[in-house]
């Protein structure tokens, strides 16, 4: 795509996202878009550690759970204002991730994936069994939406909450963009491409890896808080390893290491299973097949493929390159 067109495309997408709830009358679709935007935040976080730094983490949903329960428990058990609980949840999640990341990122390669997988399982088991705090499998009901803003915006209204999520998603996307174009982003990519050389260049590799992991946790915590106070009910099932794999898929499907790939991937991960409901009991099989085919046909994700399709179309229509 022509460079100058990218900001235009981004603005068009943003306008579409702002207009969507005004024109889409089926509440179910508004909800799906809202969930996809929450997943976009998740996927951005996953992309920082997996896509930019090259370390696959299998605990993004577990960290989302930490954020969701942190915000919920702060507001329900301690009676904190919902706004404050939601704002502090990403920081609690980030702090949590330091304790996992510090020991597991000092090693290179695949050990990190295994340690994070175990971490997700531990989170799940604790959420299930620490019933006095989390009410276990039964979950926590009646989680409040944030208090009205200046007495004007009532977040019990789905559309108002939609715009809150959209705002956070846009801010997190902007943050990711800043990170990507900064020298920090360049250093993270250097680690992904050749960790030994990065180390020889004097990069304190483990610090950068830890930063990437903690940043990914921050995103997951924000997504978790938004999710909990939207749905109003959380239980451990939502935050298992399967959902962490979905976060990985969102990054791979959309385009690893790109800015808008994870956005695309997040929508795919939310919408595809819903649309496949027509296939009923074959749903998961079809989903699995689609993923395999997609990975074979577009190993670098959908976004680079779309870019090439755009080029081809532009050539055929006779646009200057």
């Amino acid at each position: 795509m022509k460079r100058a067109l990218v900001p235009l495309a981004v603005l068009a997408l943003l306008a579409l996202a702002i207009a969507a709830p005004q024109y889409i009358t089926v509440r179910y679709y508004v909800q799906l878009i809202l969930l996809a935007m929450i997943w976009t935040i998740m996927a951005h976080g996953q992309n920082i550690i997996q896509g930019m730094t090259g370390y696959v983490s299998i605990t993004q949903a577990g960290l989302m759970g930490v954020g969701a329960y942190a915000s919920t428990l702060l507001s329900i058990r301690l009676g904190w204002p919902v706004w404050a609980s939601m704002a502090i949840a990403p920081f609690i999640t980030a702090l949590f991730s330091v304790f996992v990341g510090y020991p597991s990122l000092r090693v290179k390669g695949h050990y990190f994936a295994i340690v994070t997988l175990a971490f997700n399982m531990v989170i799940f088991i604790v959420l299930m069994n620490f019933t006095s705090l989390t009410r276990g499998e039964a979950g926590i009901f009646n989680i409040q939406r944030p208090e009205p803003l200046f007495g004007l915006v009532d977040f019990d209204d789905r559309v108002a909450y939609y715009y809150l999520v959209l705002t956070v998603a846009v801010v997190m996307t902007a943050l990711t963009w800043l990170l990507m174009r900064s020298s920090i982003g360049r250093t993270l990519r250097a680690i992904r491409q050749n960790e030994n050389l990065a180390s020889a260049c004097g990069v304190a590799v483990w610090k950068y890896k830890l930063f990437a992991f903690v940043a990914s946790a921050f995103y997951a915590g924000a997504a978790g808080a938004l999710y909990a106070h939207y749905i109003g009910f959380i239980n451990p099932e939502t935050f298992g390893v399967a959902q962490s794999l979905d976060a990985i898929l969102a990054v791979i499907l959309g385009g690893t290491g790109t800015l808008f790939g994870p956005v695309l991937g997040a929508f795919a991960v939310v919408f595809l299973p819903e649309y496949l409901r027509i296939a009923e009991s074959f749903r998961l099989i079809v989903y699995g097949l689609l993923l395999v085919v997609a990975t074979i046909l577009m190993p670098r994700g959908a976004l680079p493929l779309l870019g090439r399709a755009w080029h081809a179309a532009a050539r055929r229509l006779g646009f200057p390159k």
Binding site: R189, Q193, N194, L197, A200
Partner: peptide, 10 residues
Amino acid sequence: FQTASLFPGF
């Protein structure tokens, strides 16, 4: 390094 060691894609 003995073998060309750079950052591919850079």
